[in-house]
Amino acid sequence: MTFSAGSAERRWRLRVPSLVRRAIVPILLIALWQVGSSASWWSTEVLPAPWDVAHEFVTLCNNGQLPSNLWVSVRRALTGAAIGIAVGLALGVAVGLRRPVEEALDATLQMLRTIPFLVILPLFILWFGVDETPKILIITIGTALPMYINTMSGVRTVDPRLLEMGRQFGLNRLRLIATVVLPGAMPSILTGVRYSLGLSWLALVVAEQINAQKGLGLLIYNAQSLFQTKILMVVVYAALGLITDIIVRLAEHRLLSWRSR
């Protein structure tokens, strides 16, 4: 038998760009949603038509409510995630490399992980009040733990022979971490970043249930009666998650380019 270079799979991949292939299913779903709404398969009370949601989007953009509140929320989520990722990364490297640190911290951190971090929210309100602090803190905790777990397991898989080689060639501890440990653990670290950023949006939704005077949570609260606004918010959260995922994928592509031969 012969292997032809142009199998059907290959030709399809060559002709249609990756982005288009990925977009096909979401676009079909939205089309189905629009068709279903127009044909009154369900009442707009249950699910408003995409067209109405888009209309609401334009309204909220024009009156400035969406951009300003979106900005507040994005900043909140990213601040919390940045702190959480930095803390998780540092803990993961320290625990992964040093036995005494592991013995001191790992059990505690694993235990914290089993607590659904969202249920501590009422406690945070009690301790830190209702302004920015508890909101950022809950996002930080939610993102630090997955970051910690992934970084630690990545650091553990770094080839000890490479570490020995690095030491042999005179790298001090900091340079060893920068040139051997972090790059070796990078695939796991990026998985951690992806989980953490995803969770940061979830934590944001919960955090903004606390007395949000600004942010996407406020828009949801104000829109109790307006159903299309709620659906719009779902769409906004989905878009935020999608965008962060794409950014991490691009970073992955760059940082792990040495793996593709």
């Binding site: 022979r161 490479l162 080689m165 040139t179 790059p183 070796g184 990078m186 040495w258 793996r259």
Partner: peptide, 10 residues
């Protein structure tokens, strides 16, 4: 060493 021990990311 017996193996090259090169850093694959460099």
């Amino acid at each position: 060493f017996q193996e090259p021990r090169l850093l694959p990311w460099r």
